[in-house]
């Protein structure tokens, strides 16, 4: 079919060229797509591999070594090298939960108050001095926290409370320092992002600054603040080194906060080197790792849920 020559000349020329040379923007588009696809693939494969590896090892305990799930989760005695090995992980689960919960309880009010101060009360000083200090806190390696805990917090606790000073309390305090930057940073972002109109609306009704902060600012940003706390908790839950240095590492549920205890992570790092790959003891440690992984998923879901509420 003949087309009107003049009108389509331009388009035809372009079409001809396209057949010979691929246009640059098409190439760019493809390079971008392929590159991002590769990145995603690497990520997904890595995560998938980790989940698979941990699960397959962790589940061996139940399948091959004949330990029951309730025995692991509910058992009070951990003695894998005994003649009749015992795999009760409850003391570790208890240790992990109590240290990270306590850490969040200590760090959440501090972090949120610091964020309120930095964004609502003294934004100038907050931005210039406090924020860098808190970012610095986030960059300190965990072994340093552990060391400070061991040489400052543990002796202090020992002199005030009965016991050795090591234990859940010391672990929680060290962890609270470590997660403080997470909570503060997320809270600061949330508070700074609050629209000025809401605060003005409250002031215009005759509210004072404090009333505005605790009746409008905090409730409106609560989901975001909680997201920070949960992320902080999940960091505390996964931290091994610093806790291990101050908690004492005895496999029992302690009778007080100042008695030696253990967490899931500390027992894994302590025992992993002393076991043979594929042995029942080694597999049991993988089961503990599986519990950690499951908890991570729980934390992620909680955060997701909170994010959804935030965007409501």
């Amino acid at each position: 079919m003949e087309r009107p020559a003049v009108k389509d000349n331009h388009m035809e020329q372009q079409g001809n060229r396209a057949r010979k040379v691929v246009k640059p923007h098409v190439v760019e588009e493809w390079v971008g797509k392929v590159y991002t696809a590769i990145c995603i693939l690497v990520l997904v494969v890595t995560i998938g591999a980790i989940v698979y590896f941990v699960s397959s090892r962790g589940l061996t305990t139940f399948i091959k070594d004949g330990v029951s799930l309730s025995g692991l989760l509910g058992g009070l005695k951990w003695d894998p090298e005994a003649d009749i090995p015992l795999y009760g992980a409850l003391p570790f689960i208890f240790g992990s939960f109590s240290t990270s919960l306590l850490a969040a309880l200590i760090a959440a009010p501090l972090g949120v108050c610091a964020a309120v101060f930095m964004t609502q009360i003294m934004p100038g000083i907050g931005k210039r001095i406090l924020q860098p200090v808190i970012e610095l806190l986030a960059g300190i390696p965990s072994v340093v926290f552990g060391f400070v805990g061991l040489s400052v917090i543990v002796p202090a606790l020992r002199s005030i409370f009965p016991g050795q000073g090591i234990g859940i309390a010391a672990g929680a305090i060290v962890l609270s320092l470590m997660i403080l930057p997470t909570i503060t940073t997320i809270a600061t972002d949330a508070l700074a992002g609050l629209s000025a109109g809401l605060k003005e609306g409250s002031y215009a009704l005759g509210a004072t600054r404090w009333q505005t902060i605790y009746r409008i600012v905090i409730p409106t940003t609560l989901p975001a603040l909680l997201t920070g706390v949960v992320l902080g908790m999940s960091r505390a839950f996964g931290e091994a080194l610093a806790v291990q240095m101050v908690i004492g590492n005895s496999p029992h549920i302690p009778h007080s906060l100042f008695e030696s205890a253990s967490t899931l992570t500390s027992v894994i790092t302590l025992d992993m080197g002393n076991t043979v790959m594929g042995s029942a003891h080694n597999n049991a440690l993988w089961s503990l790792a599986l519990i950690l992984l499951a908890m991570t998923f729980v934390f992620v879901f909680v955060v997701r849920f909170l994010e959804r509420r935030k965007n409501r």
């Binding site: 629209s195 109109g197 809401l198 003005e200 609306g201 409250s202 002031y203 215009a204 009704l205 005759g206 509210a207 004072t208 409008i216 409730p219 409106t220």
Partner: peptide, 21 residues
Amino acid sequence: DVVLLRQKIGMVWQRPNPFHK
């Protein structure tokens, strides 16, 4: 006392700013 004063003089803005309540 700005609290009492703002009670006497109310304000409405261009963009509606209802509280998240």
